[in-house]
Simulated scan of single mutants.
Amino acid sequence: MILKLAAQGLSGRKIAERPEIQVSYSSVNRFLKDRRRERAEATKDIVRGHLAATLPTDLEMLDKLTRRLEVMRQDAEQMGLAGFNMEMQVIDRQVKTIGLKLKYSGADEDDSAQRLIEALSGDD
C-alpha cells in the first residue's frame, strides 16, 4: 500500500497522514528509503553485469584506438591539421567512454589501466 501511494507521488508525510496507514511518518520514510536502496542495488548489479560482459570488447577497442593514435601521430604532418584534430576528437570521446565503463565496472582499480586511459585522454 505504501509503495502504491509513493508511486502516485505522495510524500512520506502525506502517506503517514492517511487514515488507512497505521504507522508513523518516520516508519514510512524508513520503509521507502530501504526500498529505494534495494532497487538501487539491483540496478547497480544489472549495470555492473552489463559492463563486465562488454569489458573484453572495450579493451580490444582501446588497443585498436591506441594503435590508431600512434599511426595518427606518425602521419600528422601528412594528414593536415583539420583532419587530425577531428579524428583526435572522435578517439578522445571513445577513450573517455571506455574509461567511464572501466571506472564503473571497477576494472580501473588497476593503476596501469588507469594510467593508460589518462595518457590516451591527455589528462596527465
Rank of each mutant, 00 (worst) to 15 (best):
L116M: 13
T54H: 04
A42T: 08
E87A: 11
A52G: 05
R39D: 12
I46W: 04
Q114H: 13
R93C: 05
V71N: 03
K14S: 15
A40K: 15
Y25P: 00
V90C: 00
R35A: 13
G99R: 02
A16Q: 06
E60K: 13
Q114P: 01
R30P: 01
L32I: 03
V90M: 08
R36C: 01
R36Q: 14
A52S: 06
L100V: 09
S24Q: 07
I117A: 02
A16Y: 04
T97G: 04
D75A: 15
K101I: 04
L81R: 14
G12V: 05
M1H: 10
L55F: 11
M88R: 04
L116S: 02
R18F: 10
A16R: 10
I117T: 03
M1F: 07
V95N: 10
M88I: 02
K33G: 05
R93K: 10
Q22M: 08
T57C: 11
L81G: 07
R36H: 09
G83P: 00
A113Y: 15
M72G: 04
K96A: 09
R48H: 10
M88S: 12
R18I: 02
S105T: 07
I15N: 06
Q89C: 05
M72E: 09
R67D: 12
K4G: 05
L3S: 02
S112L: 13
G80N: 06
R36A: 11
G9W: 02
E118Y: 09
A113F: 15
E38T: 11
N29A: 05
A52H: 07
L62M: 08
D45E: 15
N29C: 13
L5C: 08
L55M: 15
Q8Y: 03
R67V: 11
D111P: 15
I46G: 00
D110W: 01
D111Y: 07
I98R: 09
A42S: 05
V47P: 03
K14I: 00
L65I: 13
R36D: 07
A119H: 07
A119V: 10
K4D: 12
L120W: 00
E17W: 06
G80L: 05
T43K: 11
R48Y: 02
R67K: 14
